[in-house]
């Protein structure tokens, strides 16, 4: 009996494993069960066989096109967030006075929430907002430039709320790269551009892939800003709006579940592509040797 207990403990199986129980229950009840319930529900439409709801989604252009609309917003926004945070995080490496204040300022939009951001965007970029008033008073344009209640309004909102996440992640990936590596590259004759391209970037790339995935997932499920600063019936009719309408306007839970599943599959495809690319990269230690 004791011997068996020792052998199990050797493989990490002992009473401490019970501490995992609350988390496991939580995951099963709140995530796995609703997930499979939704998949099951999506396969039980009133007509058209088990795949009826999916067939309806893909034959109806008004529903089907929400995929490209959402991808058209989420992919560029995620890409911009990652690409913009690299040079900023790169410049902000190391220790200097005022770094904390600067980081706080850059990360602050996380705390605002989408609704406040939308409010701000409407005030600032709207037809009678400060931005357009400045443009018009300086004579740069005659008519206001339309930057809200269309694609751009949602795009800006996604950048404002997504950038802090991307910046924080990229910063922490960068701080994990041994600064001695760039110094070593410098003594070997590499200029600043070469040092970044040949040493830092290859070591950072897997982190950038992960960051892209996370900001993409955040942007893909955009809902409030698509309604508040977008054009929810037209060019920013994203997939979550279609799901919402199916569930709470038409009370068609089967279709809504099917849309939710499609949403998940599209995200998984993008994530799979990015992570597949990431697997081709060097993903080991980013230290230069024994410390």
């Amino acid at each position: 009996m004791t011997a068996l207990r020792h052998r199990l403990a050797d493989r990490g199986i002992d009473r401490h494993l019970l501490l995992l129980l609350p988390a496991a229950v939580f995951v099963v009840v709140l995530f796995i069960y609703p997930f499979f319930y939704g998949i099951g529900l999506s396969l039980q439409p009133a007509e058209g066989g088990p795949l009826g709801a999916y067939r309806r989604f893909f034959t109806d252009a008004y529903l089907r096109d929400t995929i490209t609309t959402t991808l058209g917003l989420a992919l560029p926004a995620a890409l911009l967030n990652v690409l913009a945070s690299v040079p900023i995080a790169y410049r902000m490496r190391g220790r200097y006075r005022g770094k904390r204040v600067l980081t706080t300022l850059l990360v602050l939009p996380i705390t605002l929430g989408t609704v406040l951001t939308a409010q701000g965007l409407l005030n600032f970029l709207g037809p009678t907002g400060w931005f357009n008033r400045v443009l018009q008073s300086t004579g740069l344009t005659d008519a206001p430039v339309r930057l809200t209640n269309n694609y751009w309004g949602v795009f800006f909102s996604l950048v404002i709320t997504g950038f802090p996440f991307a910046f924080l992640l990229v910063s922490s990936y960068l701080s994990g790269i041994d600064p001695a590596l760039e110094r070593a590259a410098a003594t070997l004759g590499a200029g600043a551009v070469q040092r970044f391209r040949r040493v830092t970037l290859p070591l950072l790339a897997p982190g950038l892939a992960t960051t892209f995935c996370l900001t993409f997932v955040l942007a893909f499920s955009v809902f409030p800003s698509a309604v508040l600063v977008g054009d929810p019936a037209g060019e920013t009719r994203v997939i979550s709006i279609a799901a919402y309408e199916a569930a709470y306007v038409q009370y068609d839970y089967v279709l809504a579940s099917a849309i939710a599943v499609i949403m998940g599959v599209v995200e998984l495809v993008v994530l799979g592509l990015v992570l597949g690319w990431r697997a081709l990269l060097y993903t080991g230690s980013t230290a230069g040797g024994k410390g």
Binding site: A180, R183, T187, A287, K290, G291
Partner: peptide, 11 residues
Amino acid sequence: MVFQNYALFPH
């Protein structure tokens, strides 16, 4: 230059 922690490019 030879660094104390070697600073070899790990990739």
